[in-house]
């Protein structure tokens, strides 16, 4: 039943929000602390657990994947309801923050990957390469 997947997703979501609220109260922040992230981890864990015991079939999983696929459309709807008018006045912030982080991250990626290739020897990818 497709609703089982959606229900599992819903339970994980609510538990995550609940734990996030509790964590927020615990560290003295008047906010939900990482509720979405906790819910994601709960979903990964419970899905892994149920699958290994054969309790989650492909049809039930569709009740989760549908919502995963809806994520881009929902983000589009969210974008369409933002106060862009005000943000546009602060344009350079968005551009500079984005460009700065992309450039810096590209540098770090290049650095890490050079270290990996130096320690493993220079090996471009082969289709059946063993990933360690």
């Amino acid at each position: 039943m497709i609703i089982f997947g959606t229900a599992l997703l819903g339970v994980c979501y609510l538990l995550g929000i609940l734990l996030g609220d509790a964590l927020g109260g615990l560290i003295g922040v008047k906010a939900n602390v990482g509720g979405v992230g906790i819910a994601m981890m709960l979903l990964i864990a419970s899905q892994h657990f149920l699958k290994r015991r054969g309790l989650l079939n492909a049809v039930s999983e569709k009740g989760i994947t549908f919502w995963a696929m809806m994520y881009i459309p929902v983000v589009v709807a969210m974008a369409a309801t933002q106060n862009v008018l005000v943000a546009a006045k602060a344009g350079p912030v968005a551009l500079l923050a984005a460009a700065g982080s992309v450039i810096l991250c590209a540098g770090v990626i290049a650095f890490i990957n050079r270290i990996i290739q130096r320690s493993h020897g220079d090996q471009p990818w082969a289709p059946d390469a063993n990933v360690g």
């Binding site: 997703l9 819903g10 979405v36 994601m40 981890m41 899905q47 892994h48 994520y71 929902v74 969210m78």
Partner: peptide, 28 residues
């Protein structure tokens, strides 16, 4: 759009994307 792009739907869908992560592959 306010309902579709609101906090409830948005967070629900983000949590759902976690289903695309496979623990065994993630370990690699």
């Amino acid at each position: 759009l306010a309902l579709m792009g609101g906090a409830m739907m948005r967070d629900f869908c983000i949590v759902a994307t976690a289903s695309e992560v496979h623990v065994d592959e993630a370990k690699k």
